[in-house]
């Protein structure tokens, strides 16, 4: 038996293969399904509940509320289950040491990086959008006084997708950089939820200003329209933080020892 020269299949099929392996990897572990279940419970439960409250309040003041509030409020909390899904897809391999084997079958690290960023982030985004729309529909069915227009829905879905894409990229990047589930979870939660909510609460000016520079503030603005900021600012924050996280995580995967 002699070593045959191996004809590479080319980068595009390679990427397709790596992505398809990531997809299989993702759906063949239970944690993925637990995260999706938690996301579904959070988005539908919290989202529909909050939308019904809003409908009552609007009715009391003689106006109407939009059903898309259901998906938006739901996603505000439910996004964390989806971010955990994305993060675990990255960090679990460092915990079990299986990043070594993974790089044995996909040793071209650029290929692995592309697949590893794309697949979990897309899965989380698609799942989040579907759950949000489902929450909107359930809210309208339960409380027909809610308004539900195509324009509102398109806006809402666009915002939700943007938040999840940016949050997912942040989670993947942080996971690749820190290589630890606990560390990366703490970092993502602080940046995305805890600090943006906490810092303004101190009533100290610079803390509030700092809070507005965090990715979570842009996510909250996109979903709920708070705190005060322009669409341009929010976009800059979402894109900037995602890009920085991906750059740092990408460097970690491409340049460092496997780990």
């Amino acid at each position: 038996m002699t070593a045959v020269a191996v004809q590479g299949p080319g980068t595009v099929p390679l990427l397709t293969r790596a992505a398809s392996a990531e997809w299989l990897r993702l759906r063949s572990v239970r944690s993925t399904w637990w995260c999706l279940l938690a996301a579904a419970a959070a988005v539908l439960g919290i989202g529909v509940g909050t939308a019904l409250d809003e409908a009552d309040m609007a009715e009391a003041s003689g106006s109407t509320a939009s059903a898309v509030l259901a998906g938006e409020y739901g996603l505000m909390i439910g996004q964390f289950a989806l971010l955990v899904l994305v993060l675990l897809a990255v960090t679990q391999e460092y915990a079990s040491g299986s990043i070594g084997p993974t790089l044995q079958w996909t040793p071209r690290r650029g290929v692995l990086l592309t697949a590893r960023v794309t697949v979990p982030v897309l899965v989380a985004t698609v799942a989040g959008v579907l759950l949000a729309v489902a929450a909107d529909v359930v809210a309208v069915v339960v409380e027909p006084s809610l308004t539900f227009s195509g324009g509102d829905l398109a806006d809402s879905v666009g915002g939700i997708a943007a938040v999840l894409l940016a949050g997912g990229a942040l989670a993947v990047g942080t996971g690749l950089l820190l290589r630890s589930t606990a560390g990366a979870l703490a970092a993502v939660f602080l940046l995305q939820l805890v600090l943006p909510a906490l810092l303004p609460a101190f009533g100290v000016r610079w803390m509030a200003d700092l809070g507005e520079l965090l990715p979570g503030s842009a996510a909250i603005w996109t979903l709920l329209g708070e705190p005060e900021m322009s669409a341009g600012q929010a976009t800059t924050l979402l894109v900037g933080w995602s890009a920085a996280a991906l750059a740092a995580g990408g460097w970690s995967l491409l340049r460092r020892d496997a780990g």
């Binding site: 070593a3 191996v6 590479g8 299949p9 080319g10 390679l14 990897r25 572990v29 679990q92 391999e93 079990s96 040491g97 299986s98 070594g100 084997p101 044995q104 079958w105 996909t106 040793p107 071209r108």
Partner: peptide, 17 residues
């Protein structure tokens, strides 16, 4: 591109999900 057709390795049997 297709490393497993060239070389297979077992480094750490514990390193499986």
């Amino acid at each position: 591109d297709e490393p497993l057709r060239v070389a297979g390795a077992l480094l750490d049997a514990q390193a499986v999900h």
